[in-house]
Design a protein around this nucleic acid. Structure first.
Length: 781
DNA sequence: CAGTGAGCGAGCTTCCGCTTGACTT
């Protein structure tokens, strides 16, 4: 038994540290937080200065028990949880649970897992910083209050009330997506005409090459045409050539959020996929910790990286750089994400390989020299008017870091008129150019693109909302709650005009482009939109983008001992609770109602609103003598944008197509998509078939075929007990409700003779002793 | 599996941030 027990948060870290510290230390992990607020009454005694009441959750009891017994046997317990607010709190909870005195128990920290860092940490232990712990308690309690007070308000005020939730982070994330959507819906594109001209000149090998020069933009076709007109019979002469050196610097090493962004842009990974793969790499010892907001690299890592750059590319490619975090909310308890050994160029595991190589390249590039460029800007004079054309070229003089890595840019950061900078042939002042043609092309302005998972993370991080460990879970939450959907959107075709000046003649042509297409983007649902509006109306302060930043300042004051945490919470809670009570009392139910127009047939109003089962349209009102008619919106339709025509179209279902074998054949859309109903049985409609236009002639063969297939599948039915004996791809089996029960070989062979009693017995038996699952390796999707 | 759309009210849900496996199809 080692004399010392040292506790860290992560088990992979524990293994590494144990090796470094040797036999005197047993290193164990507590797997993050070991206690949390109890759920009844929020786990907070409001009338007793917000006294929190903590419990060890079920899933943490095993590890707590183990740590307790180890702590008892050790001479000394060392707390080495992460060096941030949460880590400090974990250390304090450990004291509380293990019966250690926080005033004397040794607390050490390291933000890199290297031998020198750990050895020096052990030499200078401190004790738990209670101010920092209290800042964490304030953070925890505030989040609990916001979440557990707001969510019930939604349950009361929303007709769809299952599982709804609100919180400091998730509700603002949904707001970002909701507002972006409305911005896009409200956007009216403006067009301009951009002038470009093509010339040819001889390159250094005396070969003719074509290059492009750019002119002004004109707000309309008339202006552009007038300009082209003024260029008829013009001579084009190089008026000025400027050559300027330029540099490009590499990006900082990866943090969680920049890794998620680049893996999304370069590899198309979702943020959760990135994290799963990074976790694997970390557990295998290939990379440093993957949940970090720090861009810092340890000294040992720097040496390793520069050594690798020197041996692989040469000394001139090395440039040692220290990166600073731009983000104020960063807590920097860890290093940046980097390979643990630069010598390892790749990894075995095919799933992880691309992500590892991305991390390797980014890490290398971060300590490499700037790329050196030469930019050429040539001004071209037009003899017939006073305008200039500008040709720009770029030559790479020294690759530097670009040899290994180039960061991709987000759609939103791309300027609309980015010039493509390619090579220019050598040009001299006074040179007369050989004119090919000139075009004025109509270009439309674009709205901001919808968020991807990764660009949402980027935005949240900029606002200081959420932490590296929560970015991926937050996205899962808002998707799971149905506030947001991830999907594609087809673009629409749009005409644009091009005016061409060639051989001194101006002609006009029209071309087509696709606009508005989106792939794997986040769209708000109607539920997300109405909930956001509601929360904004009644809880404007919490929905404010600056709310987290503001309370973080107060947490900092608590951490510095300048403010008592209960006072801080009270300042927040008292007015907040008043808002909550007031909202419950006065707010109307959330409906998102919008009037679309009047139904021509009945003269009644047509409205779109949220119903108990989602967004719907309705003709007439509840107060009318006649019952109103209802129809559900299609998946991609929205209350905010649906037109009267589209709404009326929805009422065309269910359609009665006519009779077959003496029964009606009707077609409609149900919970599981379009279907045909006939003789009390239902048959799904294939995707390509449109329920609005399908005919009886087309429907009958579907009914006949599907019915036959169903009959073929059915061996026996015990209607009352809802038990069926069915034929599946692996032979006969029993189905009760939604669950399937496997039959033995012998039972399968006489499946037609199985009695109700026997079927019941089989079900009971299999429920009591579920068969062992076969182990199948999960395929990455 | 294929409906529903009002209100009442039992019993339930819910937050953010630390950590990994243990689960299922």
């Amino acid at each position: 038994m080692a004399k010392n027990l040292l506790i860290v948060e992560s088990p992979a870290k524990a293994k590494t540290i144990e090796k470094i510290l040797g036999d005197d230390f047993e290193v164990k992990s507590c797997y993050g937080h070991i206690r949390d607020l109890e759920k009844v009454d929020m786990g907070i005694d409001i009338n007793n200065n917000y006294k929190p009441s903590y419990i060890v959750p079920e899933e943490k009891q095993k590890v707590v028990k183990e740590l307790k017994s180890l702590a008892k046997k050790s001479d000394e317990v060392w707390l080495a949880t992460d060096e941030d607010r949460e880590g400090e709190a974990i250390s304090w909870h450990l004291c509380e649970v293990l019966g250690l005195d926080p005033k004397t128990t040794k607390r050490i920290v390291f933000h890199e897992i290297t031998k020198p860092a750990i050895q020096s940490a052990v030499k200078s232990p401190r004790t738990v910083d209670m101010n920092l712990v209290n800042a964490q308690q304030a953070r925890r309690i505030l989040d609990r209050i916001v979440g557990f007070e707001l969510s019930p308000v939604l349950w009361r005020k929303m007709s769809m009330r299952n599982n709804l939730s609100a919180g400091r982070v998730q509700s603002v994330a949904v707001r970002l997506i909701a507002e972006r959507e409305r911005e896009i819906n409200a956007f009216t594109p403006a067009s301009t005409f951009k002038v470009e001209a093509w010339f040819s000149a001889k390159d250094s090998n005396k070969k003719s090459v074509t290059f492009k020069a750019e002119g002004n933009k004109y707000p309309n076709a008339k202006g552009a045409e007038a300009f082209l007109n003024s260029c008829i019979n013009a001579k084009y002469k190089v008026r000025d050539v400027q050559v300027k050196p330029a540099r490009k610097s590499p990006a900082a090493p990866f943090t969680t959020s920049t890794l998620q962004q680049e893996a999304s842009r370069k590899l198309g990974y979702s943020v959760s996929r990135t994290m799963v793969l990074a976790q694997k790499l970390y557990e295998n010892g290939n990379i440093t910790y993957m949940r970090t907001d720090s861009v810092n690299l340890s000294d040992t890592a720097m040496t390793d990286i520069t050594k690798k750059i020197t041996s692989q590319y040469g000394k001139e490619y090395v440039e040692v750089r220290k990166y600073k975090n731009k983000n104020e909310s960063a807590q920097e308890a860890h290093e940046a994400i980097r390979p643990t050994a630069m010598e390892r160029l790749t990894v075995e595991d095919a799933d992880c390989r691309k992500l590892y190589e991305l991390i390797w390249k980014r890490t290398m590039a971060s300590q490499m020299a700037d790329a050196e460029l030469e930019k050429t800007i040539a001004k071209i004079n037009i003899s017939t008017n006073n305008e200039d054309l500008t040709a720009q070229g770029e030559v790479l003089k020294f690759e530097g870091f670009l040899k290994v890595y180039r960061e991709d840019r987000d759609e939103e950061d791309l300027a609309e008129d980015d010039t493509d900078e390619s090579m220019l042939p050598p040009l001299e002042v006074g040179q007369i150019l050989d004119f090919k043609e000139m075009k004025a092309t109509e270009r439309f302005s674009r709205p901001a693109p919808r968020f991807t998972e990764a660009s949402l993370v980027k935005k949240l991080e900029e606002l200081g909302i959420g932490r590296p460990s929560t970015y991926a879970p937050t996205i899962s939450t808002i998707l799971k709650r149905g506030y947001v959907e991830k999907r594609d959107k087809e673009g629409v075709k749009r005409d644009f005009r091009i005016l061409v000046l060639k051989s001194n003649k101006i002609s006009s042509e029209t071309s087509q482009e696709t606009t508005g297409a989106e792939k794997s983007k986040l769209f708000p649902t109607d539920l997300g939109l109405v909930v956001t509006d509601f929360l904004k109306q009644y809880f404007d302060d919490i929905m404010d983008y600056g709310f987290t930043a503001r309370i973080e300042e107060e947490f900092d004051e608590v951490a510095q001992g300048k403010m008592k945490w209960n006072k801080m919470i009270d300042d927040f809670y008292s007015p907040f609770k008043k808002d909550v009570d007031n909202t419950i009392e006065t707010a109307e139910r959330i409906s998102g109602e919008r009037e679309l127009g009047t139904d021509a047939a009945s003269g009644k109003p047509v409205i779109a609103r949220m119903g108990r089962y989602g967004p719907m349209v309705q003709i007439g009102s509840q107060d009318d003598e006649e019952k109103p008619r209802f129809a559900k919106l299609k998946p991609t339709q929205s209350i905010e944008t649906i037109s009267l025509e589209e709404a009326m179209d929805l009422f065309r279902l269910p359609r009665n197509l006519g009779q077959f074998e003496g029964h009606d054949v009707t077609v409609s859309i149900g919970r599981f998509g379009p279907y045909i109903a006939h003789d009390k049985k239902f048959y799904s409609l294939a995707k390509e078939l449109d329920p609005y236009s399908i005919t009886l002639e087309e429907a009958i063969p579907i009914v006949v075929e599907k019915r036959a297939a169903k009959e073929q599948r059915t061996i026996k039915v015990f209607e009352k007990e809802k038990i069926q004996v069915l034929r599946g791809p692996y032979g006969p089996y029993i189905k009760q409700g939604l669950r399937n029960y496997k039959l033995t070989k012998e039972q399968q062979e006489r499946s037609a003779e199985i009695t109700l009693e026997e079927a019941k017995a089989i079900i009971e038996e299999l429920k009591a002793n579920p068969p062992k699952k076969s182990f199948r390796k999960k395929k990455a999707s």
